[in-house]
Design a binder for these strands. Structure first.
Lengths: 112, 112
DNA sequence: TCCTCGCATTCCTTGACCGGCATATAACCC
DNA sequence: GGGTTATATGCCGGTCAAGGAATGCGAGGA
Protein backbone atom coordinates (compact mmCIF):
# COMPACT_ATOMS: atom_id res chain seq x y z
CA UNK A 1 0.00 0.00 0.00
CA UNK A 2 1.75 3.12 -1.22
CA UNK A 3 1.83 6.10 1.11
CA UNK A 4 -1.07 8.48 0.40
CA UNK A 5 1.50 11.15 -0.38
CA UNK A 6 2.64 9.10 -3.36
CA UNK A 7 -0.86 9.12 -4.82
CA UNK A 8 -1.39 12.83 -4.29
CA UNK A 9 2.07 13.57 -5.67
CA UNK A 10 1.33 11.65 -8.85
CA UNK A 11 -2.12 13.18 -9.16
CA UNK A 12 -0.60 16.33 -10.67
CA UNK A 13 0.26 16.24 -14.40
CA UNK A 14 3.31 18.47 -14.00
CA UNK A 15 4.70 16.18 -11.37
CA UNK A 16 4.05 13.13 -13.52
CA UNK A 17 5.94 14.91 -16.30
CA UNK A 18 8.84 15.54 -13.95
CA UNK A 19 8.85 11.91 -12.91
CA UNK A 20 8.92 10.90 -16.56
CA UNK A 21 11.86 13.24 -17.15
CA UNK A 22 13.75 11.71 -14.26
CA UNK A 23 13.02 8.27 -15.60
CA UNK A 24 15.38 8.97 -18.52
CA UNK A 25 18.16 10.19 -16.28
CA UNK A 26 18.83 12.26 -13.17
CA UNK A 27 18.70 15.97 -13.82
CA UNK A 28 19.51 19.24 -12.10
CA UNK A 29 16.62 21.60 -11.36
CA UNK A 30 17.38 24.02 -14.18
CA UNK A 31 16.97 21.29 -16.74
CA UNK A 32 13.61 20.33 -15.26
CA UNK A 33 12.50 23.95 -15.27
CA UNK A 34 13.33 24.29 -18.96
CA UNK A 35 11.61 21.04 -19.83
CA UNK A 36 8.32 21.44 -18.01
CA UNK A 37 7.67 25.05 -18.98
CA UNK A 38 6.89 26.25 -15.49
CA UNK A 39 8.46 28.97 -13.39
CA UNK A 40 11.50 28.00 -11.37
CA UNK A 41 9.77 28.45 -7.99
CA UNK A 42 6.78 26.47 -9.18
CA UNK A 43 9.01 23.67 -10.35
CA UNK A 44 10.89 23.76 -7.08
CA UNK A 45 7.66 23.36 -5.15
CA UNK A 46 6.63 20.37 -7.20
CA UNK A 47 10.04 18.87 -6.57
CA UNK A 48 9.46 19.42 -2.88
CA UNK A 49 6.20 17.48 -3.03
CA UNK A 50 7.88 14.65 -4.92
CA UNK A 51 10.75 14.69 -2.43
CA UNK A 52 8.47 14.52 0.61
CA UNK A 53 6.54 11.68 -1.03
CA UNK A 54 9.85 9.82 -1.34
CA UNK A 55 9.56 9.62 -5.12
CA UNK A 56 12.80 11.51 -5.77
CA UNK A 57 16.11 12.00 -4.01
CA UNK A 58 18.40 15.00 -4.19
CA UNK A 59 22.14 15.01 -4.42
CA UNK A 60 24.03 18.24 -4.05
CA UNK A 61 26.64 18.51 -6.76
CA UNK A 62 28.64 21.69 -6.50
CA UNK A 63 26.12 24.52 -6.74
CA UNK A 64 23.49 22.41 -8.43
CA UNK A 65 21.06 19.91 -7.00
CA UNK A 66 20.57 16.79 -9.03
CA UNK A 67 17.24 15.03 -8.66
CA UNK A 68 17.02 11.30 -9.14
CA UNK A 69 14.06 8.95 -9.19
CA UNK A 70 13.68 6.59 -6.25
CA UNK A 71 12.27 3.25 -7.42
CA UNK A 72 10.80 2.17 -4.07
CA UNK A 73 7.50 4.10 -4.10
CA UNK A 74 6.84 3.17 -7.70
CA UNK A 75 7.46 -0.43 -6.78
CA UNK A 76 4.88 -0.07 -4.03
CA UNK A 77 2.44 1.23 -6.62
CA UNK A 78 3.18 -1.85 -8.66
CA UNK A 79 2.52 -4.02 -5.63
CA UNK A 80 -0.76 -2.18 -5.04
CA UNK A 81 -1.82 -3.06 -8.57
CA UNK A 82 -1.11 -6.71 -8.02
CA UNK A 83 -4.57 -7.85 -6.87
CA UNK A 84 -6.15 -5.91 -9.71
CA UNK A 85 -4.17 -7.72 -12.34
CA UNK A 86 -6.39 -10.73 -11.74
CA UNK A 87 -9.22 -8.72 -13.22
CA UNK A 88 -7.88 -8.59 -16.71
CA UNK A 89 -5.90 -11.80 -16.47
CA UNK A 90 -9.13 -13.63 -15.73
CA UNK A 91 -10.64 -12.01 -18.78
CA UNK A 92 -7.71 -13.05 -20.93
CA UNK A 93 -7.89 -16.55 -19.52
CA UNK A 94 -11.58 -16.77 -20.32
CA UNK A 95 -10.92 -15.48 -23.81
CA UNK A 96 -8.16 -18.02 -24.22
CA UNK A 97 -10.44 -20.85 -23.14
CA UNK A 98 -13.07 -19.76 -25.62
CA UNK A 99 -10.52 -19.57 -28.38
CA UNK A 100 -9.33 -23.04 -27.46
CA UNK A 101 -12.88 -24.30 -27.48
CA UNK A 102 -13.49 -22.80 -30.90
CA UNK A 103 -10.29 -24.29 -32.20
CA UNK A 104 -11.32 -27.74 -31.04
CA UNK A 105 -14.80 -27.50 -32.57
CA UNK A 106 -13.80 -25.32 -35.48
CA UNK A 107 -16.28 -26.72 -37.96
CA UNK A 108 -19.31 -26.39 -35.74
CA UNK A 109 -21.48 -23.30 -35.95
CA UNK A 110 -20.66 -20.55 -33.47
CA UNK A 111 -22.97 -20.62 -30.47
CA UNK A 112 -22.03 -17.21 -29.02
CA UNK B 1 -1.08 6.75 -20.40
CA UNK B 2 -4.03 6.72 -18.05
CA UNK B 3 -6.50 9.56 -18.34
CA UNK B 4 -5.71 12.31 -15.84
CA UNK B 5 -9.13 11.69 -14.31
CA UNK B 6 -7.98 8.23 -13.29
CA UNK B 7 -5.08 9.69 -11.32
CA UNK B 8 -7.17 12.30 -9.58
CA UNK B 9 -9.87 9.76 -8.84
CA UNK B 10 -7.38 7.45 -7.17
CA UNK B 11 -5.74 10.32 -5.31
CA UNK B 12 -8.50 10.24 -2.74
CA UNK B 13 -8.24 7.63 0.04
CA UNK B 14 -12.00 7.13 0.26
CA UNK B 15 -12.16 6.40 -3.44
CA UNK B 16 -9.25 3.97 -3.20
CA UNK B 17 -11.16 2.26 -0.40
CA UNK B 18 -14.23 2.03 -2.60
CA UNK B 19 -12.17 0.58 -5.42
CA UNK B 20 -10.73 -1.99 -3.02
CA UNK B 21 -14.26 -2.90 -1.93
CA UNK B 22 -15.34 -3.38 -5.52
CA UNK B 23 -12.31 -5.53 -6.16
CA UNK B 24 -13.82 -8.22 -3.93
CA UNK B 25 -17.17 -8.13 -5.68
CA UNK B 26 -19.70 -5.74 -7.22
CA UNK B 27 -21.81 -3.96 -4.62
CA UNK B 28 -24.88 -1.77 -4.39
CA UNK B 29 -24.44 1.75 -3.09
CA UNK B 30 -25.86 1.09 0.36
CA UNK B 31 -23.24 -1.52 1.03
CA UNK B 32 -20.50 0.91 0.03
CA UNK B 33 -21.96 3.60 2.25
CA UNK B 34 -21.93 1.25 5.25
CA UNK B 35 -18.40 0.10 4.53
CA UNK B 36 -16.65 3.40 3.99
CA UNK B 37 -18.24 5.27 6.89
CA UNK B 38 -19.21 8.32 4.88
CA UNK B 39 -22.56 9.96 4.34
CA UNK B 40 -24.68 8.60 1.53
CA UNK B 41 -24.45 11.76 -0.59
CA UNK B 42 -20.72 11.94 -0.06
CA UNK B 43 -20.34 8.33 -1.12
CA UNK B 44 -22.52 8.94 -4.13
CA UNK B 45 -20.35 11.84 -5.19
CA UNK B 46 -17.21 9.74 -4.92
CA UNK B 47 -18.92 7.08 -7.00
CA UNK B 48 -19.68 9.72 -9.57
CA UNK B 49 -16.02 10.68 -9.79
CA UNK B 50 -15.02 7.05 -10.17
CA UNK B 51 -17.71 6.57 -12.80
CA UNK B 52 -16.62 9.57 -14.85
CA UNK B 53 -13.04 8.37 -14.66
CA UNK B 54 -14.21 5.08 -16.12
CA UNK B 55 -13.02 3.11 -13.12
CA UNK B 56 -16.45 1.72 -12.29
CA UNK B 57 -19.62 0.82 -14.15
CA UNK B 58 -23.18 0.89 -12.86
CA UNK B 59 -25.87 -1.64 -13.49
CA UNK B 60 -29.42 -0.90 -12.45
CA UNK B 61 -30.86 -3.91 -10.70
CA UNK B 62 -34.45 -3.35 -9.61
CA UNK B 63 -34.36 -0.28 -7.38
CA UNK B 64 -30.70 -0.64 -6.52
CA UNK B 65 -27.62 0.36 -8.50
CA UNK B 66 -24.80 -2.13 -8.44
CA UNK B 67 -21.31 -0.77 -8.99
CA UNK B 68 -18.68 -2.93 -10.59
CA UNK B 69 -14.97 -2.33 -11.19
CA UNK B 70 -13.86 -1.78 -14.77
CA UNK B 71 -10.42 -3.31 -15.37
CA UNK B 72 -9.42 -1.14 -18.33
CA UNK B 73 -8.22 2.00 -16.51
CA UNK B 74 -6.31 -0.05 -13.96
CA UNK B 75 -4.69 -1.88 -16.82
CA UNK B 76 -3.64 1.47 -18.24
CA UNK B 77 -2.08 2.31 -14.92
CA UNK B 78 -0.21 -0.96 -15.15
CA UNK B 79 0.99 -0.03 -18.61
CA UNK B 80 2.09 3.37 -17.33
CA UNK B 81 4.22 1.64 -14.74
CA UNK B 82 5.90 -0.50 -17.35
CA UNK B 83 8.92 1.72 -18.11
CA UNK B 84 9.49 2.23 -14.40
CA UNK B 85 9.76 -1.46 -13.74
CA UNK B 86 13.18 -1.34 -15.35
CA UNK B 87 14.33 0.72 -12.39
CA UNK B 88 14.05 -2.03 -9.84
CA UNK B 89 14.53 -4.86 -12.27
CA UNK B 90 17.91 -3.41 -13.20
CA UNK B 91 18.77 -3.33 -9.54
CA UNK B 92 17.73 -6.92 -9.13
CA UNK B 93 19.65 -7.90 -12.25
CA UNK B 94 22.77 -6.19 -10.96
CA UNK B 95 22.35 -7.92 -7.62
CA UNK B 96 21.90 -11.21 -9.40
CA UNK B 97 25.03 -10.69 -11.45
CA UNK B 98 27.01 -9.95 -8.33
CA UNK B 99 25.68 -13.02 -6.63
CA UNK B 100 26.63 -15.07 -9.66
CA UNK B 101 30.10 -13.57 -9.67
CA UNK B 102 30.51 -14.41 -6.02
CA UNK B 103 29.33 -17.93 -6.62
CA UNK B 104 31.86 -18.42 -9.39
CA UNK B 105 34.78 -17.04 -7.39
CA UNK B 106 33.52 -18.18 -4.07
CA UNK B 107 36.93 -18.70 -2.50
CA UNK B 108 38.37 -15.35 -3.50
CA UNK B 109 38.20 -12.46 -1.05
CA UNK B 110 35.29 -10.07 -1.61
CA UNK B 111 36.32 -6.94 -3.48
CA UNK B 112 33.22 -4.85 -2.78
C1' DT C 1 -52.48 6.72 -6.24
C1' DC C 2 -49.64 7.57 -2.31
C1' DC C 3 -45.88 6.18 0.24
C1' DT C 4 -41.37 4.48 0.92
C1' DC C 5 -36.85 3.02 -0.32
C1' DG C 6 -32.48 3.75 -2.73
C1' DC C 7 -29.73 6.79 -4.82
C1' DA C 8 -28.37 11.22 -7.16
C1' DT C 9 -28.01 16.18 -7.30
C1' DT C 10 -27.69 20.91 -5.47
C1' DC C 11 -26.17 24.50 -2.39
C1' DC C 12 -22.98 26.04 0.74
C1' DT C 13 -18.84 26.50 3.48
C1' DT C 14 -14.31 25.37 4.45
C1' DG C 15 -9.89 24.04 3.41
C1' DA C 16 -6.32 22.66 0.21
C1' DC C 17 -3.70 23.33 -3.82
C1' DC C 18 -1.59 25.95 -8.01
C1' DG C 19 0.95 29.42 -10.04
C1' DG C 20 3.36 33.79 -10.13
C1' DC C 21 6.16 37.24 -7.86
C1' DA C 22 9.48 38.73 -4.72
C1' DT C 23 12.84 37.37 -1.69
C1' DA C 24 16.03 34.40 1.16
C1' DT C 25 19.92 31.11 1.11
C1' DA C 26 23.87 28.65 -0.18
C1' DA C 27 27.84 27.60 -3.13
C1' DC C 28 31.14 29.17 -6.26
C1' DC C 29 34.29 32.84 -8.61
C1' DC C 30 36.98 37.18 -8.73
C1' DG D 1 34.29 40.36 0.82
C1' DG D 2 31.19 41.35 -3.33
C1' DG D 3 28.92 39.48 -7.07
C1' DT D 4 26.89 35.79 -9.67
C1' DT D 5 24.66 31.36 -10.26
C1' DA D 6 21.43 27.83 -8.69
C1' DT D 7 17.76 26.61 -5.84
C1' DA D 8 14.40 27.15 -2.04
C1' DT D 9 10.82 29.62 0.65
C1' DG D 10 6.94 33.07 1.84
C1' DC D 11 3.18 35.52 0.54
C1' DC D 12 -0.97 36.16 -2.15
C1' DG D 13 -5.01 35.60 -5.29
C1' DG D 14 -7.64 32.46 -7.77
C1' DT D 15 -9.51 27.93 -8.28
C1' DC D 16 -11.12 23.65 -7.13
C1' DA D 17 -12.31 19.68 -4.33
C1' DA D 18 -14.49 17.58 -0.01
C1' DG D 19 -18.11 16.97 3.24
C1' DG D 20 -22.57 18.06 5.31
C1' DA D 21 -27.66 19.20 5.01
C1' DA D 22 -31.56 19.48 2.34
C1' DT D 23 -33.83 18.13 -1.65
C1' DG D 24 -35.08 15.82 -6.19
C1' DC D 25 -36.24 11.60 -8.55
C1' DG D 26 -37.24 6.98 -10.22
C1' DA D 27 -38.71 2.23 -9.02
C1' DG D 28 -41.74 -0.80 -6.12
C1' DG D 29 -45.19 -1.94 -2.85
C1' DA D 30 -49.75 -1.18 -0.34
Amino acid sequence: MPAPAVWTALADPHRRAIVALLLERPRPVGEIVDACGLSQPGTSKHLRVLREAGLVRVEQEAQRRVYRLDPAPVAELDAWLEPYRRLWNDRLDALGRRLDAHAREDDEPAKD
